[in-house]
């Protein structure tokens, strides 16, 4: 359980966020330099906000008004750094021992040795971090954090330093570790897939502010803002003109696509968007169905991407993602597709 209101002015960049999470996995999703890691550092106490209040499980870590500012040592948080920050001159066992917070040296050693077994590092206790593989380094760093029984767990881009085949495996391992962990976990990531697989709720960061925060499925289904839609993987956007609502139906003209679209219900927004996977092949006469030109095709590993455009459209072509084998043969020159109303998103800029 965490509640954090953080304001910090860096001159050229200003962090101003308000996050809260129960005992779940909260993902901070955003581009590089959007303030995600800075938020973690403020919660950990290695960086001090100008103003704000941070509480974890009811304990005040920081309160600018009451002049409370616990040291990082007092906060007892677990932070996994991007490059793991294992101490290079200590063995793996020595590293894990530094994470044990109480007990005599002998007890610390015993706790660390037990952790070696629990985190699949048996026999590696005497090695130095540089002698470990990327996955083993990550396990060692996690073991070092978890032996200290942290009140909150923070993972800063945990898989960015790993090769892609290792990434999947470590992601599964970390997920199962998180299942055993009862506190709040904050995951910083710029990968929407990682966030979708690992998190319960998402906060989308944009230039030091939180654009959207909410339950994962909710945020991915209806991102609400352009940045959130972009970061959650949407590729097709268009400016809107002539938006009207009449008899419970919203109509508008998508400028960049040169399409007239309708959605049941009352909606507002300035940008229309649709995910490439949600476009379906259709026949003319259906709602939001159009015959479109195919201006190009991209062959991906598991899908085809067809680039579609209406005559007279000015924006970038619409990306239509089709899983391999689902549409054979692939259409040439023109195709009729529909934009299902339930998949069309109206967004704020």
């Amino acid at each position: 359980m965490i509640e954090a209101k953080i304001f910090k002015d860096y001159g050229s960049f200003c962090l101003d966020v308000d996050i809260s999470a129960g005992n779940e996995v909260l993902a901070l999703l955003g581009g590089s330099g959007s303030g995600k890691s800075m938020t973690l550092r403020c919660i950990a106490g290695v960086e001090t906000p100008d103003r704000g209040r941070i509480t974890v499980d009811g304990q005040v870590f920081f309160d600018s008004e009451k002049h409370i500012n616990l040291t990082p040592q007092q906060r007892q948080v677990g932070m996994l750094f991007q490059n793991y920050a294992l101490f290079p001159t200590m063995t793996v066992l020595g590293n894990i021992m530094t994470g044990v917070r109480t007990g005599t040296k002998k007890e610390k050693r015993q706790a660390a040795e037990a952790a070696l077994i629990r985190y699949q590092l048996e026999g590696l206790g005497d090695r130095y971090p540089a002698e470990l593989s990327g996955g083993q380094q990550q396990r060692a760093a996690l073991a070092r954090i978890l032996v200290g029984k942290p009140r909150i767990l923070m993972l800063d881009e945990p898989f960015s330093a790993l090769d892609s085949h290792l990434r999947d495996r470590m992601e599964r391992e970390v997920l199962s570790l998180l299942k055993d962990y009862s506190g709040t976990t904050i995951l910083v990531s710029h990968s929407r897939d990682e966030v979708y697989r690992m998190a319960d709720s998402v906060a989308v960061y944009d230039r030091g502010r939180i654009d959207v925060q909410g339950e994962k499925h909710q945020v991915f289904r209806n991102p609400g803002t352009y940045t959130a839609a972009l970061l959650t993987g949407c590729k097709n956007f268009s400016r809107i003109s002539g938006l009207t609502t009449e008899n419970g139906v919203t109509r508008f003209h998508a400028e960049d696509w040169n399409l007239d679209l309708t959605i049941p219900g009352n909606h507002t927004g300035q940008i229309a968007a649709i995910r490439g996977h949600h476009i379906v092949s259709a026949s003319l006469g259906e709602t939001n169905a159009f015959e479109m030109e195919i201006t190009g095709a991209i062959e991906d590993i598991f899908e085809h991407v067809l680039l579609l455009r209406m005559p007279g459209a000015t924006g970038t072509p619409i990306h239509w993602m089709i899983p391999r084998g689902s549409l054979e043969p692939l259409p040439q020159n023109t195709v009729t597709v529909s934009f299902p109303a339930e998949s069309l998103m109206l967004l704020q800029p």
């Binding site: 106490g45 290695v46 040291t71 677990g78 920050a85 101490f87 290079p88 530094t98 917070r101 954090i145």
Partner: peptide, 15 residues
Amino acid sequence: VDVNLIYAGRTLGMS
């Protein structure tokens, strides 16, 4: 020295 090593030491509770 990588400043993250120092930060890590602090969050781990080392004096």
